[in-house]
Nucleic acid binder design. Structure first.
Length: 201
DNA sequence: CCAGGGATGGACT
DNA sequence: GTCCATCCCTGGT
């Protein structure tokens, strides 16, 4: 929990979204909600690429008030509501008007586990606490109020704890729940840590 | 104003 | 493993 480990803003400016996605594995996503610190190691992500990716909200350069955060310069978060219930968090990356983002799909709890369990009404710590995009946001206390917030803020940020994920321990697959995207649904843009138990389904 | 949709979760066998 | 309820927000009118 040392803010000196906070990832520098330039990390989020690369246009190589696939590479940035892989680099996020093993990093620590932290929130401070009403002075309660909770965090988890990122174990699973999905890349959503710009305007040519049919699975992306910004496909065909769709620019609305909802998708606007994705068009901003990298280094902020894009939160949206899914199925009317679940808040999903994306890390916006790339230059301004390069609308790409990385969905955080799973984390391994690190700090504030008790708080996370309270938010989820869990009595026993199991992987179900944070092994899904809607689950981890609830555990971390993330709501729509976090939309568009900078990762350089006091409310949410990402730390580097020098956990090295070897290239051979990064697996990929097609993305989850994007069947509507036709051919693009098959793209191998989901990345996760091999043999880690904190992975969705 | 309102119809439609959805980057899922959880309950159940 | 399978099934299906979910319900607020979005965006076009």
């Amino acid at each position: 929990m040392n803010s000196k480990n906070k990832i520098p803003q330039k990390f989020y400016l690369s246009d190589d979204v696939i590479n940035t996605s892989k680099l996020l594995l093993g990093k620590i996503l932290v929130t401070n909600v009403n002075n309660k610190i909770t965090s988890g190691m990122i174990t699973e992500v999905e890349a959503y690429l710009g305007i040519n990716d049919k699975a992306s909200h910004t496909y065909n350069n769709k620019r609305t008030s909802r998708t606007e955060p994705m068009f901003s310069k990298g280094g902020i978060v894009y939160i949206y509501l899914c199925y009317g219930i679940h808040h999903l968090i994306n890390i916006v990356v790339g230059k301004r008007d390069f609308p790409s983002a990385i969905l955080i799909r799973s984390i391994k709890p690190v700090d504030g586990i008790k708080t996370m369990m309270e938010r989820r009404n869990f009595k026993k710590l199991t992987k179900e606490l944070t092994n899904g995009p809607g689950k981890l946001t609830k555990a971390l206390g993330i709501t729509m109020k976090y939309n568009s917030i900078s990762l350089n803020s006091k409310k949410i940020w990402i730390e580097n704890h020098n956990i090295i994920i070897n290239k051979k321990d990064i697996l990929s697959s097609s993305r989850i729940g994007v069947d509507y995207a036709g051919e693009d649904a098959k793209l191998p843009y989901r990345f996760y840590i091999k043999n880690n138990k904190w992975i969705s389904k």
